[in-house]
Amino acid sequence: MEEEKKEVAVDAAAAPAAENAAAGVEGTEGAEPKRAERGGISRRGLFIGVGSTVALLGLGSLRYAGHNPLNRPPGGTDEAHLVSGCIRCERCYEACPRKVIVPAKIEDGLLGMRSPMLDFNTGNYCDFCYEENGGNPQCVAVCPTDALELPAAYTVGNPETGETGDVIIGIAEIDPRTCLAYRMTGCRDCFDACKYGAIELKDEGGANPIPYVVEDRCNGCGACQAACLSLSSGSIKSTERAIVVRPIEA
């Protein structure tokens, strides 16, 4: 994008020169101030217009560059629809009562920059606003462009009954190389955090219970990832927690 921006900047820098050239051609009035031309587009105008159009088309082609898959807020799992609709107005960040919606970083791809994603490493997770708004996600409600959109009828995960619901953010995945339970520490924080019975233990009640994910019960709420302490306990070299929610790739 830097390059494209520069391109426009160059056009802008070239514009005064073009203006002078234009004045030179028409220069019958000598040094007298030039009447602004109306009813036509000046050469500089053409430069800026065409240059910017080219730059914006270049920027648009980012669509094909794509970006890393991200965990989207409820109603944002149709990636193509979200990218088309989101105008980066930042209302969903504000609306989220648990503050798990954060702007996507440039590192994950320019196309997705500043679009909403869920960050469960904040120590909080998405309960689909079950507690705060009776299961009617606030982010979806405030989204003014319907970029976050749920079908007319839907059920969200119910932490009281343990129902998974049909709004799925992603599926949790355990990395055995970094999971503390695999090191015989007896850690079962993710199992305790899951309200939908999506994590079960091998050798439950034994000395070393090891968690695994039951995929069709997981709705990607992120409670397990929020509770995981693999990065803060034990000197394990990794950039992410041992249990993370992965978006479902279409």
Binding site: M1, K5, L56, L57, L59, G60, S61, L62, R63, A80, V83, S84, C86, I87, R88, L110, L111, M113, R114
Partner: peptide, 11 residues
């Protein structure tokens, strides 16, 4: 052409 609000990226 590309199906997303392009200018919003640089507004």
């Amino acid at each position: 052409v590309f199906g997303f609000p392009v200018f919003c990226l640089v507004c």
